[in-house]
Structure formats: C-alpha cells, structure tokens
Design a protein around this nucleic acid. Sequence first.
DNA 1: GTGAAAGCGCTAACAA
DNA 2: TTGTTAGCGCTTTCAC
Lengths: 340, 340
Amino acid sequence: MSRTKKRSTNRDVAELAGVSTAVVSYVFNDGPRPVSAEIRTRVLEAAQALDYHPSAIARGLRKQTSSTIGFIVKDFTPQNTFLYPYTAGILTGLVDELKQHDYYLIVFPIGVGESVEQLRDLLRERRLDGVVVRFPDTPSADDQLLELLASSRLPSVFFERTIANHPSITIDEVTGATLATEYLIQQGHRRIAHIVGDLRMQSARTRLDSYTQTLSRYGIPYDPELVQGRSWYARDGAEAAHRLFDLVQTPTAIFAANDTLAYSAIQVAHERGLCVPQDVAILGYDDAPVENAMSSSLTTMQIPLEDMGRQAAKMILQLVAGETIESLVFTPKLVKRHTA
Amino acid sequence: MSRTKKRSTNRDVAELAGVSTAVVSYVFNDGPRPVSAEIRTRVLEAAQALDYHPSAIARGLRKQTSSTIGFIVKDFTPQNTFLYPYTAGILTGLVDELKQHDYYLIVFPIGVGESVEQLRDLLRERRLDGVVVRFPDTPSADDQLLELLASSRLPSVFFERTIANHPSITIDEVTGATLATEYLIQQGHRRIAHIVGDLRMQSARTRLDSYTQTLSRYGIPYDPELVQGRSWYARDGAEAAHRLFDLVQTPTAIFAANDTLAYSAIQVAHERGLCVPQDVAILGYDDAPVENAMSSSLTTMQIPLEDMGRQAAKMILQLVAGETIESLVFTPKLVKRHTA
DNA sequence: GTGAAAGCGCTAACAA
DNA sequence: TTGTTAGCGCTTTCAC
C-alpha cells in the first residue's frame, strides 16, 4: 500500500487529457461554460484513469462554501447527548436529508457547563455553511450561546425555541397536551393524574398547564395530589407513580409528560399487581423511538422527530441558498396502542 | 445585521498591526518561528479588534489536513442508525474525545442497500483526515465498502470487525457470554435458557456458542427447546419468552443476547404473573444506555461503548499523526442489578 | 526577528 | 468553444 503515491489533481487530469484546468472544472461542475462532447469524454476518461476527485477544501476556499452544516446540541445531561431520543431522532432525519443534497454534517455537542470558546472557533472558521441548533428550552444563561450564534452571522435554524429573527422548528405543546388530556377524559376517566417532567423546562410547564386547563374546561376539579414528578427520568417517574398509587383515591388514568415516565409508571403498576390499561390507563408523550421492550405497546403522543430533522435540513439549505423561509410548527399526534 | 460586512483575514490583521502576514501566522500557530513579545501583542490586539479567526479551509488547503474525522456507520435497520444504542454510545465518546483535541466529526450513516458512490466522494475529497468505521459484522457483501476504504488510503479504525492490516476495536464476546452463563450457573441455575439475536451476525452466533459450550463444560445437558429468538428486537424477544414460559419444564433463568430482548422477557414474565428474579432470573447483554424505566434495574453484561468511542478517537488521531497503533479488545463486565 | 513571495487545488473572469 | 491567469486565505521557504 503505497502511501507515497500522490493524489491526482486538476492539473494532472488537464495534462493527461490535453486540455486546460479550466475545462476540467467545467466538466466536473457542468458549467458555467459548455464543453464539447468529445473533450468532455476525454476529460472524464483521464479523470477515471487517474482516480481524480476534486478537493473539497480547494473548492471551498475558492467558492467560500463548505457544503457542511453544523448540528449544535446542548443538553442537560452531561455526556450522553446522543442517547437522548430527541437528539437521535432529529439527527437521523437531519443527516439523511442533507445527504440527499450532498451536504455533510458536523455534530457538535456542548456538555454541561462547558466553555463556548471552541464553539466560537467552529462558527468563525468558515468550516460551516450553516447551523442547526438545539438548546434546552430553559430561560437560563444560554444567552451567551445565542449571542455567539447571532454574531457569527451564520444561517441558522433553531429547534424548540423561538429566537427573534431566526426561523425555528417548534412543537405545539399546548395542542399536544390538550389532546392527550382530552383523550383520557373521552375514555371516561375523571380521576386523571399527571406526572410532570423537569419544570425548569418550558415544555414541562406547558404540558402541565394544558393538562390543568383542559380538566377545568371539562369541569373536572383539580386535585394537586394528582400531580407528581420532578424530572424526565425513570427514577423520579417511578417515585411519582408510587405516590399516586399510595393515594386513598388512586387515579384511573395517568398522563405522563414523557415516555420514560410512562414506562416507569407502567412498571410500578405491574409491580403493584395493577393491570394496564384495565386498572389504570397510562398515556405517554414523545413516542420516543427507542428500541425497547414496550415501545410498541405504549399509547402516547407522537412527535415526528425524524421528520422534524428532515425539515430542518431543508430549511437550513434554503437559508444557505439565500431564500427566506418560515418557521415551522409540528403538532403531536395521538397514537393509540395498548396502555390507554 | 449587516451580512455584507466581510470577514477579516490574515492580511487585514497584518496591515492593522503593521506586520507581514507571515508574522500573523507565527503568532496564531506559536511557530514555527519566534515572534517578539511586543509584536505578538500588537498582532493579537489587531486580531481582537477585527474579530479575526483563521479560515480552516485555507489552512486545510495549505497544510493538506482538515482536522476532521469521519464516522461511517452502516446498520441493518433502515433509517434510525443513531437510535441504536451502540451507535449513540460510541458516537458520544468519539465526538467528545475528538473535541478535546480540536478535531471535528462528520457523521455519515449508510442506509440499507444504499449506493456507495457518495461515500467514495467523501473519502476522496480530502475533507477527512481519517475515518472510524462501524459495519455490521455480517460476512456479507460489505466487501465493496471495505475495498473502498482501503483504496482511499485514509487512516481508519474499525469497530467490531477485524480487517487485515487495520487497527480495530472489538469486544471479547466469548468471554462476555461465558461470564454471563457462568454467573447464572453459579447462582444455582441448571435450567438456563438463551434468547438469541440475529444469527446472521457473528456476535449473536458467538454468544450462542459460548452459552452452549459453557453449559457443557459444567456438565449441564443442552436442551434445544431452551434456545429461542430470531432477531435483536423486542417483538421477537417477547415471542421467544412466551415459548419458553409455555414449556412443560420452564427455565429458571434466561440469558438474553441483548438488553432489548431481556426487557421483553421481563415484561412477558410480569404479564404471566412471574416475579423476576425470584421465579425466573433474567440477564441481559450490552448494558445499552437507554433512558427507560428499567435501565437501572437490569442485570446485564456491560459493554463500555462510550469508552470505546473515546479510544477510537485516540487511535485514529495517533494514526493520523503517523504513529503505529495496536488493536484493542474490550471485555464485557457483569453488572449485578436486580433481575438476576 | 521580520518581509516577500511561492504555492496548496480549485473556479471564473478575461482573452482569444 | 477553449486557454490563461488571478486570486480564495493561509503556511513556510527564502532572503534579509
């Protein structure tokens, strides 16, 4: 394996084909000027013979583009950004759609409490044509990041956040949580509990608010005991479920703020000998596409993460192309399976 | 927001600081030639004033490197490569470690049955300094991909595959599955079932083989009825579990070939009113770091995916730096939790 | 210790 | 229709 053999360039091809480098460029870019059929094939053959592939770096320098998009992700959890179904789902759609358009994706997770210096570099280095950004929806000190993005003047699309003057892709949480609650009511439930997520996050608060408002709209009294939970994670979900089942008057239905919490509740129900959904109906939220035992049986509100990733790709590419675009809002859909 | 304002370059800084562009380079690269303290600060101030950041593209063209690594992933499942815990875990460690070294990561999933033309381009475009590759371990027609990799002459590290002359990171499946089976035997079990994964994959076959061999080494007769399953997925796991519990003589322990299958088995056990681990012990494999209700309670064989990703990063960087490196083998560790 | 200048591989404006 | 050539922004050799 001769590592010394130099890769062939523009010029090598030109020489072998007996043309100028310009023509080689025209052939490979289908323009901007026409090339006679005969010369075109001669160039193509020479390129083939030399195994020539244009250097993306050199082209990038010349055209001032990179055909690369950045995916900037900041999450609460420290190291495992990509294990989070939201991130993974979005990433899947995003990268796949970009591929269709011959764009590449650089992933850039930002750990908890990490400095932004490196991100600043990335955004200024001309390595990216645009960025897709997902920050947690806390109203906290991400301002630094936002300012960084803004000052970089890179085209950007935001996930689950509306930033002034930036197109975004968001979820209509109000409708989602309202539909969820209404469904349980329509199933005849009156004693409906809610396991909340991390209330520092807007989405958790919105789901809670929509739950209470829907109850009141249907004339169902609000019972604070029926609202439990403190994070998005399984342990807290299990604890919340135990509290609910310990109540004198237990709920007949539980609306969990995400699937993880719903799974915990199901497990706790099973442990206590309760049947789902006969003894207690359990409804999730996210339709997190994880591969696990119960993912196919949970009734939940589906968020089309992969599709959202696809749309994000399309949006950022339009932005890069100089078009103006509109923000997008996705509405969760009820997926009836076997737990509610 | 003036999109017209041009970004400042090398030269702008040089002019403002009253030096040559060479000096600017020396300052930003700390070499290769020394710069007087006075001039250094003058350059730095000018750069600050102009918000100058060197262009990675231009530097790349000059130095013939990109500070970018590719992560090429091919999986069985069509669109959701990144939802697979293996991929997500490895990716997390990989990208994080690369960040420490100021390298970026381009992710490139390859869908089922997808053409390799685009990958060929990526590998030849000089966009990458090296690649980390994970293909499923089938002995099938990935040869095309392998040949592509080889002919690109890019430094590469392979996951879970040993390719001639290529450093790799693999898992000692024999030891892992043997430890798993031995543990159940040592717990006093004699009637131990195994739910296999997709037997087209080497890892599934190895886990099965090690299971049978360990049984025979301990003088436990092999009962074909106790081996069920046909894929890595929940549905087939549940079906396998039902078959096992339908047996006249049911198993007292189940070794599942991965965590997903283990979870299915647990759920089925619960549905049938069996207690885990009292009535039936269930042992998983992977310690897939998914966020779900039971992830913290499953007894399983742990594969340090994130750590493997980290090591892959270190290896590929060493390779890029021209050093020679050794392949690495990771051994799964038993993690005792509450299901076996 | 510093400046001038060549050149990385490509694209596109200017010539012919 | 094609050739020539000037850069894109950087690093580094050569000269001082």
